[in-house]
Amino acid sequence: MSDCIDIDLVANAGVLVRGGGLGLLVDGMHDQDGHPFGRVEPDDMARMGRPEGIFERLDYLLFTHEHPDHFTPDLVAGHLERRPVKGVFLPAPAREPEGRARLVRALEERGVPHWTMGPEPGGTLSVSPEPGLTVTAIGTRHMGKQFQDVRNDCLLVSLMGMNLLFTGDADHVPEYYEEALKDVDLDAAFVNPIFYHNPNGQAIIDGIFRPLELVIYHMPSNGRDPFHLAFTVKRALQRYARPDMPVHVLDAAAPHVTICPAVL
């Protein structure tokens, strides 16, 4: 259906959002190792640059935070040499690596609109780069005590009158979301396995997000699951399943989901 939005898994928390004649890639350019999650395959990067297949439209690149399983600046800069984009949404800098500086220079040299988001936790920053599209960053911190100094932008993508929330690795702290989402009706929320499994995360999903549909993403690649996230999700689905909120697990076995407007 033309009024629906298609979501395709690229790798890890990397997804391609297609709707309204636009393609938006969220956390979908990273090739570094050292973590149990999948890297974007070279074949997919080549398809993005040609363009080919689901990557026929690739207009905006969005990133939640500066971790290597979400964002590789040099890979983004290399893509710009092969194919122009309409804009890039950058996360708050966790540090000032050379790769990010090279990317910013490449964006400026090519005249590509780019926005550094990264509002304070609980705050928001919105950009409407063209009619029918608004991206709002909701400031949070990365989950896990060891990452509390890392900002994570929850990205609220408003496209074709629908609202999709991509949480990345945001912590399950209600104060981050209460004000930012109090007047927002979410068609779908995307959360990682730990957020979904945690009782505090469930309280946020049920009490603040209240999405029509929920998608669990950021799943480990096949054969590399040292944290047993697949088992964790299976048990959590048994515990928290709700008949009024469809839950999709976006992984290698089911890499596509379609989100359609609510039927009144």
Rank of each mutant, 00 (worst) to 15 (best):
S128C: 04
R151C: 06
G53P: 03
A94M: 05
P68S: 05
F71K: 02
L24D: 06
D44Q: 12
D8M: 06
A137G: 07
M48Q: 04
R239Y: 02
F55R: 10
G111V: 00
C260Q: 14
D183W: 11
L164H: 11
F147W: 14
P255N: 11
T136A: 00
H70E: 06
L214G: 01
A188I: 04
S2A: 14
G23D: 05
Y217D: 04
G223S: 08
H30Q: 07
G168S: 01
L237I: 07
G14N: 08
A13Q: 14
L75K: 11
P255C: 10
A236R: 00
S2M: 13
I205F: 06
P199Y: 13
H248W: 10
H79R: 06
F71E: 01
D244K: 09
R141L: 13
E130S: 05
P97M: 01
G21M: 13
D8K: 06
G23T: 06
P243L: 12
I7E: 04
V257T: 11
L103Y: 07
C4F: 09
L156V: 03
N192H: 15
N152L: 00
R39K: 10
L75H: 04
R105A: 15
E179G: 07
L125P: 00
D206K: 11
V184T: 15
L164K: 07
Y240E: 09
P93T: 07
G123V: 00
P131T: 05
G111D: 01
E56D: 12
R50I: 05
T64L: 00
A203R: 15
A77M: 02
A253D: 14
I5L: 07
E178G: 03
D225Y: 09
Q148S: 14
G207Q: 10
R47D: 08
E52Y: 08
R235E: 09
A94C: 01
A262C: 12
L250H: 11
